[in-house]
Design a protein around this nucleic acid. Structure first.
Lengths: 212, 212
DNA sequence: GTCTATAAAGAGATAGAC
DNA sequence: GTCTATCTCTTTATAGAC
């Protein structure tokens, strides 16, 4: 039985390698700037293997978008499910962002490449939109919990506050890529913490201000 | 005498048309997806005219980045200089954003294309970074003024608050492109207004801390 | 300055061998 | 499944006519 899945598994492995190589190259040179030959070569194959596993470049891009979207949605779920308290949630967020900071350029480049591709391919937009909704939804729940906990009246619809917090992620990472000196390592977490404090009206506590 | 500048002016005009056509096509199909021939054709010329005015596609991209950066910095200056009161500033901001909303897709696509290009071309990064700094700086001044006016202590360094407000622009526009139903037409202005209100309403914070 | 023609390289995709 | 060879189209860039 150990060999029963070999065919399928082998196919999956090859496809996975091609997808990973494509992700790298898309970040480096853009979707349009990376050729099928380069993708196959970096994955350790030839063009033939590529066309044996994907109908063409467009098909690979669509699948990459799909795969990454699904994985990120999972990560969001796991991250939020794991943390029970506010501090735990922020710790998880910090870890996540530290990770991302390590290769911010390529991470952001890939995200924007896929985003641009989705903008230009209307039928793919809902896919990406879904992931964003999930992220915003999880955030909204967190915000609501914090507001309840503090017993404070929300300054606005929690969904809107979550939208702000979520949008900050892309926005701050863009600023950081362009000007690393002006945007701290943990700006995203710092900003979200600051906002949450403002909204829950806990701002008076002098002890732990600003960044960590 | 009316013809004295014809040569220079003619050259400027042709270059301007090529740059405008390139901007359109870059938004539609990406920098790498738009060919020199397509650019020249949309501008109403042939490839020959293109190469007569630019050393190649890279040179055009660099100049486009330069031109747009300069223009946007000017617009920031004008917008902030014109508005004396807070309401005037927000009105200007609203008008600016309504304008942008009309063709959000192509606007955002072009911005991200140029951003990606800057990420991949290190020597161009400072150019874009400069524009962002100017925008953040203008915002920071506005925030500081508001805080002073309200007599409230800042919950953080005004520069950090300005960074948050500025980052929100990109972030919210991205969310809006992906999910127009979930992000209102004036989300950017609404969000900035909300934040400013939260920050000015927060009294007794301890001086100015925040990021370093 | 702008055109047409063309060289040279690179792209996506297919066919057939193994 | 993966390789090599090949077809066809597109691309960048140059040359020379006007």
């Amino acid at each position: 039985m150990a060999e029963r899945l070999t065919r399928q598994e082998s196919r999956r492995r090859t496809r996975g390698r091609l997808l990973a190589a494509a992700a790298e190259l898309f970040a480096e040179r853009g979707v349009n700037g990376a050729s099928v030959e380069q993708i196959a070569e970096r994955a350790g194959y030839s063009r033939g293997a590529f066309y044996g596993n994907f109908a063409g470049k467009d098909a690979l891009v669509a699948e990459l978008l799909n795969e990454r979207t699904r994985r990120e949605a999972e990560e969001v779920r796991e991250a939020t499910a794991g943390a029970a308290t506010r501090d735990e949630a922020f710790d998880a967020l910090r870890a996540w962002n530290r990770d991302r900071a390590r290769n911010l350029d390529s991470w952001l480049a890939l995200r924007m490449e896929l985003l641009l591709h989705a903008i230009r391919t209307p039928e793919l937009r809902p896919l990406l939109a879904e992931r964003e909704q999930a992220a915003r939804g999880a955030l909204a729940e967190g915000v609501r919990r914090e507001l309840d906990r503090g017993g404070a009246a929300a300054p606005a619809d929690p969904a809107f506050l979550a939208l702000i917090a979520h949008a900050l992620e892309d926005g701050l990472l863009i600023q950081r890529v362009l000007d690393p000196g002006a945007v701290g390592d943990e700006a995203v977490v710092d900003a979200v913490e600051l906002l949450l404090r403002s909204w829950t009206a806990l701002g008076g506590a002098p002890g732990e201000e600003g960044r960590g």
